[in-house]
């Protein structure tokens, strides 16, 4: 605990030093353009003033992100387990997976807009594509790499059907599934900001882009800080959940 405190005290010191540097260059020097680099007081003011607007943006971003991630998780894990367990099919289809998975999801924007009726559904589709591949491929990998000894075990007790999937395949591959879901989560924030570039009327990314157009960089920075806080919080919560699901990997005998 004391060691933690010591480590974090250094971290905090660096944080305040960075703020001091910002204050120095924005308030006491002419080196930086004051429009692009506003002083801290202005950023804080913008943060307070725009807080409601940013919260609304957060809500509308989540309205895109949550359905897309949920769908990507269900289909990614379901499809991953399906192909993970079937070597023949996996070999037939894996060239498709390898070609499609590295494509930036934003490449599909024209088709998403052309085929889907609303901006919202098109954005969800793009976000889904971005989150699906890591989860899908991670799940396949997790299933393929299940320890042979666990397989022996499952065979010996004759696991079949629902128990086979829920009590064996999913838990055994869950470390890979969850780590790829973490990747998908981070990736989906990147895609979210891009998806909000077309047609969005609100959103965490939209907020920043909107005020960039008016050169209101105090709002832009407030938005960036707000994004950072939200994304960090979500990732920390996810890590907590992940740790809880994978509790069995960190048990100690007493």
């Amino acid at each position: 605990m004391r060691r933690n405190l010591k480590h974090y005290s250094i971290t905090l010191a660096i944080f305040f030093l960075l703020i001091l540097i910002w204050v120095y260059f924005t308030n006491f020097s002419d080196l930086l353009n004051p429009v692009i680099f506003p002083p801290i007081s202005e950023i804080a003011g913008a943060f307070v003033e725009a807080f409601d607007e940013m919260l609304k943006g957060f809500a509308s971003s989540m309205a895109l992100l949550i359905p897309a991630l949920a769908l990507a998780f269900i289909l990614g894990v379901g499809g991953g387990v399906f192909f993970g367990l079937r070597q023949n099919l996996r070999e037939i289809f894996s060239p498709f997976f390898h070609v499609l998975s590295p494509l930036p999801p934003t490449l599909f924007i024209p088709y998403a807009i052309a085929l889907l009726p609303t901006f919202k559904s098109a954005s969800i589709a793009i976000l889904f594509i971005g989150a699906f591949w890591p989860i899908f491929l991670g799940t396949i990998q997790g299933v393929v790499l299940i320890d042979k000894r666990y397989w022996d075990n499952a065979k010996i007790i004759g696991l079949k059907g629902i128990d086979f999937i829920w009590k064996f395949v999913l838990p055994a591959s869950s470390p890979y599934i969850l780590s790829s879901t973490g990747t998908a989560l981070i990736l989906s924030f990147i895609v979210l900001i891009m998806a909000e570039m077309f047609g969005a009327e609100a959103g965490m990314g939209h907020f920043v882009l909107y005020y960039t157009d008016f050169s209101q960089y105090d709002y832009v920075l407030a938005g960036i800080i707000f994004n950072a806080i939200i994304i960090l919080t979500i990732i920390l919560i996810f890590e907590k959940v992940k740790k809880r699901i994978l509790f069995w990997m960190n048990l100690k005998s007493d």
Binding site: R149, D152, N153, I156, F168, P171, A172
Partner: peptide, 27 residues
């Protein structure tokens, strides 16, 4: 019906002792 005890890993680490046994009993 095969009953086997391996050197280790005869149990699934994500299930409790009784859950491991219930899984075998169920079948």
């Amino acid at each position: 019906d095969i009953a086997v005890v391996f050197q280790d890993y005869s149990l699934f680490p994500w299930l409790t002792a009784e859950e491991n046994i219930v899984l075998a009993l169920k079948k």
